[in-house]
């Protein structure tokens, strides 16, 4: 178990190094004259020279990379050129908001998705299953900005239940922010819901075909016991890894959703940064997201290993 964990951790670190090189090359080398891109075409020579000095753009690329990684690790993330403020406090504040939204989304999505998936899987090809399949296929087809706008129309303007935009004050507490979190979370949830439910469904169907199910039924166990004690236990195991994959979906989903609802999270900051081509800010945001994504994957792998006796017991 420990060896498995250490191997996964080592692999994660390697991936992070390569990913950071990719991020660095895309933001430092691909755009050409980085200082010019950051400041825009009208900027004076002196200002450009100053940015070049600040970012160390005249050093060879490997030196720049090492400097940049060191800065990121020790928390010197530098200045955002479009807001003229420190990047670190800006990103951490937005990160907190995004995490609040992500938690609410997952708390809503996971139980519901697993429930629907199991329901569909147990009733394969009956009307419940068809209904769930058609509904989830349609939801998958709708981009988050479309579902979000529909929800705003119905629940904010129609019934007046929730605020239409989620302009919370930057340091609002969780419960203070909760009403503004519901609509964006439901929007992000819908896509996850469809996706997870479909995977759980196929897991349940696969499992029901296994010989042990027939054995259990033939030895006289009630259907309910067979399903709860045997089938679900095995079918839901892969769903843990699904959770990890869904973090990736959540990341992209939240970027769009935050912009639909004007929610002050990382996603909105990201679009702001891309729009202004604020490369240092883009770098920091990407690195933070990749870190979270990688560790979420590691956690899911660990949970899977803990629950799966084949990995837990075998070395």
């Amino acid at each position: 178990m420990w060896r498995y964990f250490l191997r996964r951790l080592g692999f994660l670190l390697l991936t992070l190094v390569v990913t950071s090189i990719i991020i660095f090359l895309v933001t430092r080398w691909l755009p050409g004259d980085v200082a010019r891109v950051i400041l825009g075409r009208e900027a004076g020579e002196a200002a450009v020279a100053q940015v070049r000095e600040e970012l160390g753009l005249d050093d060879p690329l490997p030196v720049q990379y090492v400097d940049w990684v060191r800065g990121f690790v020790v928390g010197e993330w530098g200045l955002s050129y479009s807001t003229r403020t420190e990047i670190l406090p800006l990103v951490t504040q937005r990160l907190r908001n995004s995490l609040m939204l992500a938690v609410v989304t997952l708390v809503l999505a996971v139980p519901l998705a697993v429930g629907l998936g199991v329901l569909a899987g147990l009733n394969e090809d009956r009307w419940v299953d068809s209904l769930i399949s058609v509904a989830s296929l349609s939801v998958v087809g709708l981009p988050e900005f479309v579902t979000g706008l529909i929800l705003i129309q119905v629940f904010a303007f129609g019934f007046g239940l929730f605020p239409a935009t989620s302009l919370i004050s930057p340091d609002a507490g969780f419960f203070e922010a909760l009403p503004s979190l519901i609509l964006p979370a439901v929007t992000a949830m819908l896509v996850l819901l469809a996706y997870i439910a479909r995977l759980v469904r196929s897991g349940v169907i696969e499992e029901l075909k296994q010989p042990y199910v027939r054995t259990a039924a033939l030895k006289g166990l009630p259907y309910r016991t067979v399903v709860v004690r045997h089938v679900l236990r095995n079918a839901l195991l892969p769903a843990v890894t699904v959770l990890a994959i869904s973090i990736g979906w959540l990341v992209s989903g939240l970027i769009v959703v935050e912009n639909v609802f004007n929610y002050p999270g990382m996603g909105r900051l990201f679009i702001f940064a891309v729009d202004r081509r604020d490369l240092p800010l883009i770098q920091a945001l990407t690195m933070v997201t990749v870190l979270i994504f990688a560790f979420a994957n590691l956690l899911a792998d660990m949970a899977y290993a803990l629950l799966n006796p084949q990995i837990r017991l075998g070395e």
Partner: peptide, 10 residues
């Protein structure tokens, strides 16, 4: 390891 949408924005 980069979510697709993130790579796109980058």
């Amino acid at each position: 390891a980069l979510p697709a949408f993130l790579l796109a924005l980058l």
